[in-house]
Amino acid sequence: MNLVAETAAWLTNPAQWAGQAGIPNRLLEHVLISSISLAVALLLALPAGLAIGHTGRGAGLAAGVANLGRSLPSLAVIALAIPVTVRIDPVLGGTVLPTLVAMVVLAVPPILVNAYTGVAEVDRDLVEAGRGMGMREREILSGIELPVALPVVLGGVRSAAVQIVATATLGAIFGSGGLGRFLVDGIAQNDDGQVFGGVLLVAMLAIATEAAVEILQRLARSGAAGRGSGSTAAIAPGPPVLGA
């Protein structure tokens, strides 16, 4: 039986569409793992990036953190996290927690860097105009800098989200759920249909994620255009570090 037929057979088998090991549940697990880690990364990186971009202080530190973060191989981060997370929670710490840690580490650099650069590159005249109108610093950030910088900020979120969706599959090696299970179990059981079915599902989820954030970005861009958006920063083109 060839690959296409095997994959089609696996995908259309009703057994694959029910139960804990079924596609809907694995997809849900994958979406949950990805959204939780993206949310944590946003909470950590977004306020810090915006503040650094606004004040110009701490840029060196942020660059160091981002650079360190994107150099760390995700597999190594998971390996380092396991002995620690197991102590925190014997069950979750040996399965899903280390993956969450690694995904947060993966997502912080692009969010931090784009938030910082986006805000820092907002036309200074706009900011001065805001000050001249008596706006407070917080109002300048939320009312001028953030709206203008939004497309760039969302570019970082997009990069982070796609990388998380793709890389979260690694967690399955270490007993986590999600779509990676089909890849890891498929290899272990020498089941090509399952492997390729899993590959298709993950790729589709990643592409859907990218498309979703891109729509947000378009909306932000059309909003920012009316306010005279600054240049969009693109020094290192493309998403920097992939599922490493």
Binding site: V165, I173, V199, L242
Partner: peptide
């Protein structure tokens, strides 16, 4: 094409190529 490639997880590519 390069962008689409980027969204495919490495684990998936390795797994797919084994066969």
């Amino acid at each position: 094409l390069a962008g689409i490639l980027y969204t495919i997880p490495s684990l998936a590519l390795f797994a797919a190529l084994i066969s």
